[in-house]
Simulated scan of single mutants.
Amino acid sequence: MSKLYIVPTPIGNLEDMTFRAIRILKEVDLILAEDTRTSGKLLKHFEISTHMHSHHMHNEHKTTENVIARLKAGENIALISDAGTPAISDPGFLLTRACVENRITVECLPGATAFVPALVNSGLPNDKFVFEGFLPEKKGRQTRYLELAEEVRTMILYVSPHKLVKTLSEFATYFGEDRQICVSRELSKMHEENRRGTVKEILAHFENTAPRGEIVVIVAGKTIVKEAKKNKFQKDEE
């Protein structure tokens, strides 16, 4: 029976590639890659010669139908992104959904993704959290901030380096300057950095030091301690 494999690739350190991922990529009939030039370097490093086709956010609506047809014909296909786990802020959801609708087996391998180490490294509560990925660029951005300002769970966001200072300034407006955050850069790479502190402190740092590399920001949820104490006091008074 044919199968679609969702295969995570390293977010920086090539040693994070799993033996199973390498085997699957060598055995499948076709690899769908977000950027064949970027993935070509990875495949060459691990001596993987499987043919690749481009599958990215700009063409996935057009290519999905053809991929489903090939899977129905009996081929095994692997989907990879430039880095991390496909479908996590990368192409993959549309194809996975189409496979499920067509009763084609989907198997996602465990592996690298940026937000898990960033969350753990932050030191902020991780028993409950919400993954936001990239916030809307313009339309709906303010509305989303107003909603997140009331979120009590730890929040995970992806931020482009050239938008980090602007985003941190928005944090100060909507979350307050004293909200605890952690900015993780270049995870698993030589210059990995996890900078923790208040929004005010982290903003001041990156206003003086231009941020570079892939960035994950972890934001503490809104504290409800004061409100809980207030409710308890009112209950005791009754």
Rank of each mutant, 00 (worst) to 15 (best):
A210T: 12
V216D: 00
R196F: 03
N194G: 01
T173R: 13
R196Y: 02
H191Q: 12
V183K: 13
A172M: 12
V199N: 06
I215A: 00
F171H: 09
R212F: 04
R185V: 01
N194I: 06
S188A: 03
E207V: 06
E207Q: 08
A172F: 09
N194A: 05
A204K: 12
H205S: 02
S184E: 02
H191R: 14
N208L: 09
L203H: 01
R185C: 11
E177P: 13
E214G: 04
V183L: 07
H205Y: 14
A204P: 00
S184A: 15
F206S: 06
G176L: 12
V216M: 05
D178W: 00
T173P: 03
A220D: 01
R179Q: 07
E170Q: 14
S184Y: 08
V217F: 04
N208C: 08
K200A: 13
V199C: 11
E193A: 15
V217S: 04
R212K: 15
C182Y: 05
F171R: 10
N208F: 06
A204W: 02
T173Q: 13
E193Y: 11
F171P: 01
E207I: 03
V183F: 07
V216Y: 01
H205A: 06
V216I: 09
T173F: 01
S184N: 12
V217T: 07
F171M: 13
E186I: 08
V183H: 06
C182D: 09
M190L: 15
M190C: 08
L187W: 02
